[in-house]
């Protein structure tokens, strides 16, 4: 752990440029946060990482060693533990508008936290944020997908500070360390947020598998699996064999084959693994939006006309109940 300095928003602040709100789990930054650092590096300005919550210390210690990170700010107040937008945005506003601060960019991962925080902050700063950046073209010009990824828009911001969320699958996470940690400074909010939102509980799905958003391999099941039993009987062993994360189409999630958080698509997770195996998925545009940037796509479907075959590198038409067990055996 490096020296912790305390900062009092005085005029002595050094010039800083890109501020990035990062998240962590189990004492480590999330892969999406490391992708956000990668995007920040492409913007090309000094990077300040902001980490909030009771366990900010350990995450900050990791981030402080990460390549590209020039400064780390933390606030260990437990009110930030669930990164509720109502609590977090007043603090970020204060940091951005603090005396002597000179932030030109503020980034978040395009996680559920980022999606909740970024626009609220935009409203507080009177700035129009840019959602889900997939490419940094220039300091003020970015590319983002619209219409479920059926079009790519290049947009140039006229705002004085640029707020953007970063699509994790479009930027390889920075894993390189500098071997030397930068100083971690503590920040605190000068006034209460006055938030009336209370965190009640959470139910997270625990899994031994790689996290869906950052997995290098994904096995996904759809309506063609017919029921939860078949989903579990076929998809899980195939995923285990490949050390892959499990994904699903909306149809599979809605039919209760698996948890909502596994949905891949326009309104679910966006993934870009090296290998994506779609089993019993027809390939609606909303699903393709979430996976068509995968390096290799394999489709197994009994319907040879299914749209998924238009994007698949390798397709196999047939009964998944026969194909999948055979595939598991032969891998």
């Amino acid at each position: 752990m490096s020296i912790v300095a305390r900062r009092f928003f005085s005029g002595t602040r050094v010039k800083l440029d890109t501020l990035a709100l990062l998240e962590g789990t189990n004492g480590k930054p999330t892969p999406a946060s490391l992708s956000t650092i990668a995007a920040a590096i492409e913007i090309g300005k000094p990077i300040t990482a902001l980490i909030l919550g009771s366990n900010a210390d350990s995450i900050a210690a990791e981030v402080a060693k990460t390549k590209g990170v020039d400064n780390v700010l933390i606030s260990k107040d437990s009110k930030y533990d669930h990164l509720l937008a109502e609590e977090v945005t007043p603090l970020i506003k204060q940091i951005i508008q603090g005396d002597g601060s000179n932030y030109t960019h503020f980034l978040t991962p395009n996680s559920s936290v980022g999606k909740s925080v970024l626009p609220r902050l935009g409203a507080l700063l009177d700035v129009q944020p840019i959602s889900e950046v997939i490419k940094v073209i220039d300091v003020d010009t970015f590319m983002r997908p619209i219409y479920a990824g059926n079009a790519l828009a290049t947009v140039k911001s006229k705002d004085s500070i640029i707020l953007a969320s970063i699509r994790a699958s479009a930027f390889a996470p920075i894993e390189e360390t500098t071997g030397q940690a930068v100083t971690i400074e503590e920040v605190s909010q000068s006034s209460e947020s006055g938030s009336r939102t209370e965190f009640v509980s959470e139910e997270l799905i625990s899994s031994e598998r790689p996290e869906l958003g950052s997995a290098t391999r994904v096995v996904a099941g759809g309506r063609g699996l017919k029921n939860k039993e078949t989903f579990e009987k076929l998809i899980e062993p195939l995923a285990s064999k490949l050390n892959a994360a499990i994904g699903a189409s909306r149809a599979a999630v809605d039919s209760g084959f698996c948890d909502n958080s596994l949905q891949v698509g326009q309104t679910g997770k966006i993934v870009a693994p090296d290998l994506y195996i779609a089993v019993g998925i027809s390939g609606a545009i909303q699903h393709l939006a979430g996976m068509k940037d995968a390096k290799t796509i394999v489709a197994i479907n009994k319907d040879s006309e299914a749209a998924i075959f238009n994007v698949a590198d390798v397709g196999l038409v047939g009964d998944l109940n026969e194909i999948v067990p055979e595939l598991i055996e032969k891998l």
């Binding site: 939102t197 209370e198 965190f199 509980s201 139910e203 996290e211 958003g213 958080s261």
Partner: peptide, 11 residues
């Protein structure tokens, strides 16, 4: 619906 599952807020 959040990454990794669900949570409940009250306001």
């Amino acid at each position: 619906e959040v990454d990794g599952g669900a949570d409940t807020l009250k306001a």
